[in-house]
């Protein structure tokens, strides 16, 4: 088995006991790392070592380890999810690093994403934004046959592209303003494009943007860092689409767009 790797690395990791305490960067050695390991498996190895020594293991969020749950969230060497494009941290492998390299690992940084412990942050702001209006108000049952709604393939595909967002928060982490616009706009776009989303289109945009602002995210300067770092390559076009819907809702629509 190709277990025994030959890479020796230095890790600089943010350690913080809980939300209330101060944190700091702590240096660890990660020796005998195999290039076939995933980044998180490398951290597993470091943690096993720490536990054997009786030290608190490094806490980081992770779950599916196949790039879809959106749980993993490490800011590695100045980039969310590390140096490779269009993947999550769990899909990053150690062969993307050089032997002897120093790797800096930090949590997502944003006022709206407070650190919970070490590298794990609280992303419930994203949930609250979606609770504000990220849905089509239909009850279970009593809906038309699925094929009664014809949707042009290109529109369905575009909506799907927006819907691929995994809610990891890399867009916020990458943005110099800690803005959540890419996330929020992807969620708004999915419904804004589909016929099912039309009845609530404007009230939804209004409600979700209002909640986004309340959470304390920064505003967008269209730098595109979010798009470049998004593991699902969500397009900046979504932001334009959201702006259009929001401003139409607030400035031009005659109906009351304020959701109850």
């Amino acid at each position: 088995m190709s277990t025994n790797g030959n890479m020796n690395l230095t890790l600089k990791v943010w350690r913080q006991k809980n939300a209330q305490s101060e944190g700091s960067m702590v240096t660890y050695k990660a020796d005998g790392i195999s290039p076939d390991m995933s980044f998180l498996e490398m951290l597993d190895v470091v943690n096993e070592d720490l536990i054997h020594k009786g030290d608190d293991p490094i806490h980081f969020d992770h779950d599916c380890r196949e790039g879809i749950c959106g749980m993993c969230s490490l800011y590695i060497n100045g980039q969310p999810h590390g140096p490779k494009r269009a993947i999550t941290t769990c899909q990053l492998h150690m062969r993307s690093f050089k032997d002897g390299e120093t790797i800096t690992i930090e949590p997502w940084r944003a006022a709206a994403f407070p650190v919970v412990k070490d590298l794990a942050v609280d992303r419930s702001a994203f949930d609250r934004i979606q609770q504000a209006g990220g849905y089509v108000s239909v009850n279970t049952g009593g809906v038309p046959d699925a094929n009664e709604i014809a949707i042009p393939k290109v529109i369905a595909d575009e909506a799907f592209n927006s819907a691929t967002c995994i809610g990891c928060g890399a867009c916020v982490a990458a943005c110099k303003n800690a803005s959540a616009m890419l996330f929020v706009s992807a969620k708004i776009s999915q419904f804004a494009l589909l016929p099912q989303g039309q009845p609530e289109r404007y009230s939804r945009a209004q409600a979700m943007v209002a909640q986004m602002d309340e959470e304390g995210f920064g505003s967008c300067t269209n730098t595109g860092a979010c798009e470049a770092e998004c593991p699902k390559e969500i397009s900046l076009t979504n932001i334009g689409r959201m702006n259009n819907d929001y401003l139409s809702a607030k400035l031009f629509r005659q109906e009351d767009v304020n959701r109850g």
């Binding site: 600089k12 960067m25 140096p83 800096t104 006022a111 110099k176 303003n177 730098t223 860092a225």
Partner: peptide
């Protein structure tokens, strides 16, 4: 925007974005 990120990153931002933006 500054308030939206009260604690800065230790590493410099390497996310690709144009100099002007």
């Amino acid at each position: 925007n500054r308030k939206a990120r009260p604690v800065k990153y230790a590493s410099s931002n390497n996310s690709p974005a144009s100099v002007s933006s």
